[in-house]
Design a protein around this nucleic acid. Structure first.
Lengths: 158, 158
DNA sequence: CCACAAACGTTTGCGTCGCCAACGATTCAC
DNA sequence: GTGAATCGTTGGCGACGCAAACGTTTGTGG
């Protein structure tokens, strides 16, 4: 027996940055597992939801709205386009851009992924009351707001 | 102008797992930058604090208490030992183990890193009132508690 | 009108992070 | 005493977020 597996020191367990990292890890796991069961990914959901809520957009716009990096967006859209969830047409008004449009298939897929995401959030927040869940969301949103988009624009300082 | 850079959709910004991921990223950045200025690392601080609070321990014990993986702990202790922050002696009572002990140098280093960590938490939580900070910490701790150690033991299911 | 700067999509590659698998050495349990 | 388990260590993997660069296309100032 020698030493009963002492838990982590109290100080360490009260450090917000550490709590955030740990919780984020758990959260991403819960979300990841569920979406993986549908062959999907965090990013797919974010893109689909953004398209559904804010309408068609260029890849760069999607990148800014979702916080997904330009270079990662390519693969995400490839997969979404390959499964007919999304159409990617050259923008006639600006031939640098692609206009990404949500399809009917994509809308159905979004519905399914949305259900999974809600499940995951529910399991994540299981130990909290509804009020506490709202409060946590509010506080986290305040942090995210204050510290600007975690993902600064691609060209913010020329 | 065409399109004023529309922000992220509301739904997306209200998803806890996403908020957690974003905040954790910001938090780790704030901590990382400060500690890097001292040539230190997240993990160094966690180990030093754990040693200071719970006394000498084997590497495996430190691993469990800090949540740092066994295999990563090696490098951390190498660096802490190379800078005389820590002594690593073979345990005479169990020659598999190393007994890791905090030195006076280590205690001084911990004091410095601790100050930096507090600064980082302060900047992270800047937009929150003291009460809100406590509440956030409490809620996150509840999550971390409920979902067990984010890092299950090395041999939990033989 | 024309050079020059900027934005776009894409590819390639990097650094960090958490983790697993395996190994030799040692200890524990039956 | 034999087999299981633990320890420290090495090497490597996959996910994530990001930077750099390139060719293409658009805009902007002289």
């Amino acid at each position: 027996m020698s030493t009963p597996p002492e838990p982590a020191p109290a100080r360490l367990r009260a450090i917000p940055s550490r709590l955030l990292a740990g919780s984020a890890l758990v959260a991403d796991r819960l979300v990841g597992e569920r979406l993986a069961a549908e062959g999907a990914h965090k990013w797919h959901f974010a893109v689909l939801l953004t398209l559904a809520e804010a309408g068609p957009a260029s890849q760069a716009e999607l990148s800014r709205r979702t916080g997904i990096h330009r270079s990662d967006m390519v693969a995400v859209l490839n997969e979404l386009a390959d499964t007919d969830c999304v159409r990617r047409d050259p923008d006639p008004a600006d031939r640098r851009r692609n206009v990404v449009t949500l399809t009917a298939v994509g809308r159905r897929r979004l519905a399914r992924l949305d259900a999974l995401i809600r499940e995951a959030q529910d399991e994540l927040l299981a130990p909290l009351t509804p009020d506490e869940r709202d409060e946590l969301t509010r506080l986290l949103a305040a942090l995210a707001d204050h510290h600007g988009p975690a993902h600064p624009g691609p060209d913010r300082t020329p």
